[in-house]
Structure formats: structure tokens, C-alpha cells
Design a binder for these strands. Structure first.
Lengths: 264, 264
DNA sequence: CGGCGCATTGAGGGCGGTCAATTGGTGTGG
DNA sequence: CCACACCAATTGACCGCCCTCAATGCGCCG
């Protein structure tokens, strides 16, 4: 039953980006460790800062992010999560987490007890390696954002964020004809990009003026992905979405070449 | 024989920060996968951007860092490594690496073939988990730097870097009476902090003027760690240097309380 | 209708960038 | 031993991106 759930299918797909595609038995073992679907209202904290993780959560629907509260009251978001993502897999091995997880929109999550998940990983080494792989991709995303925050002006940061979300959402089937739901307020985007909400607004207007995106009422349409990627110096390689470069190339068309709404 | 090498002892110590201390048999297995000690001249690339990793390297002596070259010619460093660090453990599971590794000083490294390391990990699950743990700490450090680059002014960034290096070097026994070797040029520090070399210089002068550090000719003395940590809003928790919060507390004195050169 | 959250717009200011010149330490060749 | 080159640190002048503070519009909901 649970295997049918679309989010587990998304997780399966994500895991299959690693060289060793998980078997159905492994997926079954993983699936049964998760508890029931839980709803989290928009704006709520799914986990709180400085707590000891006891469960690991899978985001089924909605957007969420890892946020750090600073003394000055500012907030930096260090990761954005989309459906199909493990939100806090790193909590499996850490004793304390220095950030909280906020539901950017109303979310549905499923969580598994740390102990059970460890047991599953012990019984299925390839699965363990696949989860390790997920945490390593997470780190690669962090590194990319270090260069984005460190070296790129506001416009490039924003373009990069849009491109990354496009690629990741597309990977889990949430982009349709160049359009996807982008329910983050400009203030939240500012928390991600390390910009003020005011400046985010100006930057978005610039992207609109250049004819790169249409973004209104939570719906974002990418008009010219290649141009947007050029502005953001975006290259999807770090996301490791292509299944196993060590094997033969897949015939999946590239992001840029695929259906962009410009033609719609 | 190889176990005697100080850097392997450093690695052992690092691994022991995880709840499951590695057995000598596991360490032996790990040790034998490494090739001979190799010397890398200052400024050379230990691995290059966009290559496919075939080996994983352990830094034995010297400082190194992960650097991304951007189109504009700028360079962002996303991680600094000190002796005892695995430099590119994430390469174990990744097919392509989007950054290179530079020897900030003359370095000595030992490397292990990816295939052998995988085999060792397969044969010793607890060891695999310990290495997973190391990559997760890496990610935690990345997250911390995202907040530092995103939200803190130049002075705080610099203070944070010094505090982090102090803590990490102290962990591997390379701090003596509040002093450690800091062989990075101000330009390199700028690549880490996402600042221009000129501004790094001004910030360092400010730290000196406030009586927080003495930093001359590659030797850095921390005069007032607590004050420096306050400026950088530094809290060592994310480094996970304390062995296993889930067990009983250790009696190891805290960083701030311990030997600082102020008293020397 | 009034309140609220969010997007938008304008004015002014500061942190840190760029450009450029100077100093000083070190190594090298004469 | 000195002249010279070279690199790293330092200093000054000027400037621009993005911040802060504020006000206004706008859609949605009670």
C-alpha cells in the first residue's frame, strides 16, 4: 500500500540516481519503518533548533527549509526541500542539530525512528550506501550555495535558485510545461539568498523585465531556461540527477532542451 | 608500522568522535588501503575540478582547501582542511567533483583507491558508518559557513574562521599555548571568507587593534578566545568534537576554559 | 468594511569592492 | 655584499551594491 504513495515513488527515483538501484525488498524495508502521514501547517517548525534528533523525516508534499536563527533575529536558510526529499537524514548520525526545519507551506511528512532506520541500514548495506549518497548530495548543494552566496550578485543568486528548484522539481515530476508552484514569499527567498526582502523584490522585477520568468501568485513560469541558467551560472551537475555517469549515458533530454513554456 | 604515523592517529581520534570507536582491526584494514606518503608542493592542485575521483586522500601534513574556479576568474574556497582530515571522502560515492583541491602549503597526503575503500567499508559496516559520519560533519561545517557568509559582516567572518581553525587544530594537537601555524595568505583567507584581500587586511588589523589576536609571519596567537568567539558568534557544537553526546559527558575542559595564551 | 500579509516603490547611507601606490621581507644573480 | 625581482602586507581614494527605513498599493478573509 505504502509503496504506491507518490512521495515514496519520488524517493525511489532519487535513490536510483545512485549507481545501485534499490531493490523492491529494500524499498519495502525502508517503507515499513515510516510512520503515518502527518500534516504540518504552514510556518510551523517540523523540528526545532538544538534538539536531539529521534526521527528522520521524509517530505511528502509541500516545501520546507532548514533555518538557523541568529541572535540579531535574522534567519538564514541553508537548504530548501521539495517533495521526495529526506529533510533531516543527517540527523541519523548526529547527536545535535544546529538548525530547525520550517514548513514553508503546509506540508505532509512521514518520519521514521532513528533506531529503526539504523537497523534497516544495517540489514541492507546497499541501501545504507544509497542514503549516504543522499547526504553527500546535500553537502554538494551546500558547497554550491557557498559559492553562490560568496561570489554572485543578487540577480545571479536568484536566477540560480530558480534554476535549481526547476531542476529538482522536474526530477520529481512537479514541473509542467516550464511551470511550477513557487509558494515562497519574497521574504523567505531573502532568507535563502541572504538578501533583504526589498532587494529580492527588485531582483525579481529585473528577471521579469528581462523576459526570463513570469512569477505571480505562487506560480512560476520559466520563459527561457538557458538564459536564466546563464545569468545564474547554473549547471545542474552538482545535483547528480543523471543516473550514474559511470554507466552508459541515458537518453533523457537535457533540461535546457526540454519543453520550456516559451513554446507554450 | 603505519599505525604509528601521527596522521593516522589523528584520523583515529576523529573517528572516535563518533559513538562507535573503531577497533584496531578496522583501523588496520583502513590503513592498509592507503598508498605511500606523497608530497605536494605549495599551490599545486591535489585534485582538479570536474574530474572523476579514483582515489580518496587523507591529509597528513599541511593545509589544503576545496576551491571552485568561477568564470570571472574569482575563486571561492568551500572548505579548509587540516592534518588528519579526509580531503575528498565524498568522492567515494560521487562520479564527478565540481571543485578542485589546492595545497595551501606544502602538503603530505596518502590516498586510497575508491574501489579498495569501498571494499573495506563493505567488510566493516561500523567503519562505513564512521566515514559516513565524517561526510555529515563536513556538511554541517558547510551549513555553518552558509550562515557566516550570508549573515555576518567581515569582522565576524574572520573571527569565526580563526575560532574554527583553533578548535579543529586543537583537536588534532596542533595548538600550543593558544598558538598555531596559520600559513594562509590574506588573499587565500579572502577566498574563504568571500572578501577581497584588501578588506581581509583591514579586518585583521581590527582584530589586532581589539587585542584579540597576534598574527604575524604565519603564526597566529589567540589572545582572548572567548572575546573572539563572541565577535564571530562561534559555537563549536557543529564540529561534533565532543565524543558522543549520547554517552556520559567527558571531562575534557571546554575550549574557552583551556590554556589560552593570555596567561602565557 | 477593516485588518493583515505580502508586494512594491523611493530616499539615503554604509560596508566592502576596485584601483593604485608603497612598504618590507625573501630569494636570486651578479 | 649589493641590486633586483617578486610576493605579501599595507594604505588611501573613490564608488556601487545592497541595506534600512518608510510609505503605499493590493488581494484576501473575517
Amino acid at each position: 500500500m505504502a509503496e504506491r504513495h507518490p512521495s515514496l515513488e519520488r524517493l525511489r527515483r532519487k535513490l536510483s540516481h545512485y549507481v545501485e538501484t534499490p531493490t523492491s525488498e529494500e524499498l519495502e524495508a525502508l517503507t515499513t519503518t515510516f510512520g503515518p502521514l502527518q500534516s504540518v501547517p504552514r510556518g510551523a517548525w517540523i523540528t526545532t533548533q538544538d534538539s536531539t534528533p529521534t526521527r528522520c523525516s521524509l517530505l511528502v508534499s509541500g516545501f520546507a527549509g532548514r533555518s538557523v536563527l541568529l541572535r540579531g533575529g535574522e534567519q538564514q536558510t541553508t537548504a530548501v526541500h521539495v517533495p521526495g526529499d529526506f529533510i533531516d537524514l543527517h540527523g541519523l548520525l548526529l547527536n545535535s542539530i544546529d538548525h530547525g526545519i520550517v514548513a514553508f507551506t503546509a506540508c505532509e511528512v512521514m518520519s521514521a525512528p532513528v533506531a529503526s532506520l539504523k537497523a534497516v541500514v544495517d540489514d541492507h548495506p546497499p541501501l545504507g550506501r544509497a542514503l549516504w549518497f543522499l547526504t553527500i548530495i546535500d553537502a554538494a548543494v551546500h558547497r554550491r550555495w557557498l559559492t553562490v552566496l560568496g561570489r554572485r550578485p543578487a540577480l545571479g543568486r536568484c536566477a540560480h535558485l530558480i534554476c535549481e528548484l526547476y531542476a529538482r522539481l522536474d526530477d520529481v515530476g512537479l514541473v509542467e510545461r516550464g511551470r511550477f508552484h513557487m509558494p515562497l514569499s519574497q521574504a523567505r527567498v531573502g532568507e535563502i539568498l541572504a538578501l533583504s526582502a526589498v532587494h529580492v523584490n527588485r531582483v525579481i522585477q529585473e528577471l521579469r523585465a528581462r523576459g526570463l520568468v513570469v512569477w505571480e501568485r505562487g506560480l512560476l513560469t520559466v520563459l527561457d531556461f538557458d538564459a536564466l541558467a546563464a545569468v545564474g551560472e547554473f549547471d545542474a551537475g552538482y545535483l547528480q540527477l543523471q543516473p550514474a555517469a559511470r554507466g552508459p549515458e541515458t537518453s533523457r533530454p537535457s533540461l535546457g532542451a526540454r519543453a520550456l513554456a516559451r513554446s507554450a
